[in-house]
């Protein structure tokens, strides 16, 4: 239960991210932190051919797939989630109150994903970094002392609209 890392890129392509998490130094770092299972949802990004043999040699249990209709189960199983910066994945992981590292794709033209990641980082709900900062983020272990994200209050919008519409 406490030794599973889940990596997700969502429905997009994020090759540098997948290349980083399948590199020997990253895998060695996971092992040194005590993780034994790695689950990777890599979407359209290719994983290197040597990935499964590499993890096998290191003694890390690997489960890699392109996409699933719901990532919920894998997120629940994980003790650490390393996610791309899409708002859907971020919200899902925050709801489950998981240790969360969000990796921003700096190559995207539209950088609003980075805004969400860093805003939530400032509030202490997650750790936001670039691909090159991933190793550091893992080492610093700030993801172990995150502020729980408050449950959404469905009455907030409803009350606002009731007042506005006068019903």
């Amino acid at each position: 239960m406490t030794n599973n890392v889940f990596v997700t890129v969502g429905s997009t392509r994020f090759d540098r991210f997948i290349a980083a998490i399948s590199s020997p130094p990253f895998l060695a770092q996971l092992l040194s932190l005590g993780y034994t299972h790695l689950t990777v949802q890599h979407g359209q990004s290719p994983i290197p051919n040597s990935f499964s043999s590499l993890t096998h040699d290191l003694g890390l249990h690997l489960d890699a797939y392109t996409y699933k209709s719901s990532l919920r189960d894998d997120m629940e199983r994980a003790s650490l989630i390393v996610s791309h910066a899409g708002s859907g994945s971020i919200l899902e992981a925050l709801r489950l109150n998981k240790n969360l590292i969000v990796v921003v794709n700096e190559d995207l033209m539209d950088n609003h994903q980075q805004e969400l990641g860093s805003a939530l980082h400032e509030q202490g709900h997650l750790v936001c970094c670039s691909v090159s900062g991933l190793e550091n983020a893992l080492r610093e272990k700030k993801y172990e002392s995150l502020v729980p994200y408050p449950e959404p209050d469905p009455t907030r919008f409803a009350n606002f609209l009731n007042t506005r519409m006068g019903v």
């Binding site: 708002s87 919200l91 609003h112 994903q113 805004e115 969400l116 805003a119 919008f157 609209l161 506005r164 519409m165």
Partner: peptide, 16 residues
């Protein structure tokens, strides 16, 4: 109708 727009949670500093 009253037109109500709710900007996405993903938008922090710029509008969509």
């Amino acid at each position: 109708p009253d037109l109500v727009f709710i900007e996405s949670f993903a938008r922090v500093k710029t509008l969509s």
